[in-house]
Amino acid sequence: MIHIHSSVEEHVHLVSPIHQLDTRFKLIGMLFLIFSFAFISKIELLIFSIFVSFFILTISKLPFRFVLQRIKLPGLLIFMVAIVTLFFSEGSAVFHLGPLSVTKEGIHSFILILVRFISIMMLMVVLLGSTSIIQIIKAMRDLKLPTLLCDMIFFSYRYIFELGNDLKTMHIAMNMRGFRSKSILSIPTFALLSGSLLIRSYEQSDRVYNAMTLRGYGQNSNYYKQETSYTLVDCIWLIILILLSAFILCIEFGPY
């Protein structure tokens, strides 16, 4: 039912300058750039943003097909929203399509939403396609995310796969006993399925927690600390990404 590893992390082991970056530096740099893209409202900057995203994607050596795969589904939703903004924005009409009129402001919003989405998503796919989820969580921990949140993230990440597998097994078992979900009348049955799933997993999580406590979990928070090192290349990449973000924000909010 859920094949998370195979789809998201299938290109994590490629060798490229982006793949080799220290995850903490990559995370900070990429987030700066992604957020600066979110501020863009000028068409000239949109062209620049898509060029930057495409350039970083090329350096990362990730296949373009992989990016399309990741963008396809959320792209459909954003396209529908962009269509709504195209036809329902107020302003000076450029042309009419039956009862609907397309305005200059509508066209601007349409292009803005779509191109901004593609630029951000390309960078997101590069970030996630070149780094494993565990590396990202560890980097967040190194960047001083509260311990309680880090613990919850690690536990949740593990339970996602456990619950996914259990759900699949129980669903197959229900079907083999003749269950066919055809209407809303099956809601109570789905609630019972979810309840059984929660009980099963809760008992298991309780046992795991007790075992961890016996091994010293929660006694000393310093056990997380590890030796981490970074190189000059990591620093240079971070500076480049931050300068690019600063450039975008200066053009966006400056008097140019």
Partner: peptide, 15 residues
């Protein structure tokens, strides 16, 4: 103490 239960429901929300 409540982290396992909270993490379990986090995963459930995801699933």
């Amino acid at each position: 103490k409540e982290i396992p239960k909270a993490a379990l429901l986090t995963a459930a929300f995801f699933i």
